[in-house]
Amino acid sequence: MLTYILRRLAGTLPTLLGVSILVFVIFNVVGDDPVYLYLGKNATAADVESMRRELGLDKPLVVQYLTSMKQLVTFDLGFSMSAREPISRMFLQGVGPSVAVTLPALVLYSGVSIVLGLACAYWRGTLLDKLIVGGATVGMALSYVAVMIFAQYFLAFVPSQHGWVSFPISGYERGFPDCLPYILLPNLISAFVALGYDTRFFRAVAVEEMNKEYVRTAKAYGAGTRKILFKHVLKNILIPIIARVVVALPLMIAGSFLLESFFVIPGLGYKLLHAIDSADYPVIRAFTMLIALLVVVANALADILNSLVDPRVKLS
């Protein structure tokens, strides 16, 4: 087991190397000169020169790459250009709000969509199945941005105009009970958008499982609906479920970018977009790299989790 875990974690190293090279190429080779972007048109040659030296951009590309790798490994990421704040602190402060707007939604919609998917598979071909699938298909076609705008308008803006109890329109407060009202609506939106995709996915997985012989046998023995679904089928579809939750992670991150910028929540996405707006190059590069790192490690952890759930995984 331990060797498998170590091997899987070691397997992420080439991937991380690839990601870091791509990020470096995008920002240092393809991208516009960050110094010009930041200083604007009226910069003097001396300003540009001193800033280039400060950022280490006057050195050869290989040296620049190695320096950025060293910064990443030691988590000493330097300072933001606009806020003059250590980037590592900015990042750590952004993690909390980002998790708060994504994790509850992930749990919520995964649970709901698994139940809906199982229900569809069990009552396949009935009106219930058709309604759920139809609803999911419609849900998949909705634009994330539009859902967000209209949800804020109808659930936060309109009720507050009438003086009813409502969600706050935007904003965020740190600390556990204080942040709750602010993260409710973003989580609901995020769960709603993902629900359609996942319901259809879990339905397909469950339908395949329901056609297997052990389900027929269980039915023949007179096992009840609930027992078949939640005791036998659910256990057997755990692997696709775990895989799916991991696949959903990037989608959640994309969503948190939108939600954070729209609801003004100071998470990772909000800070990254703010950095893009102010051409804060060190922040953009460090954040991209760190978020990528988190996702790659999360993928590896999911594989390890899968091997704990199903010993067959290790063999392949």
Binding site: V19, I21, P250, I253, F257, I291, V295
Partner: peptide
Amino acid sequence: AINSVPFIL
């Protein structure tokens, strides 16, 4: 490398 990072990034 491309696939293991969220596309939005």
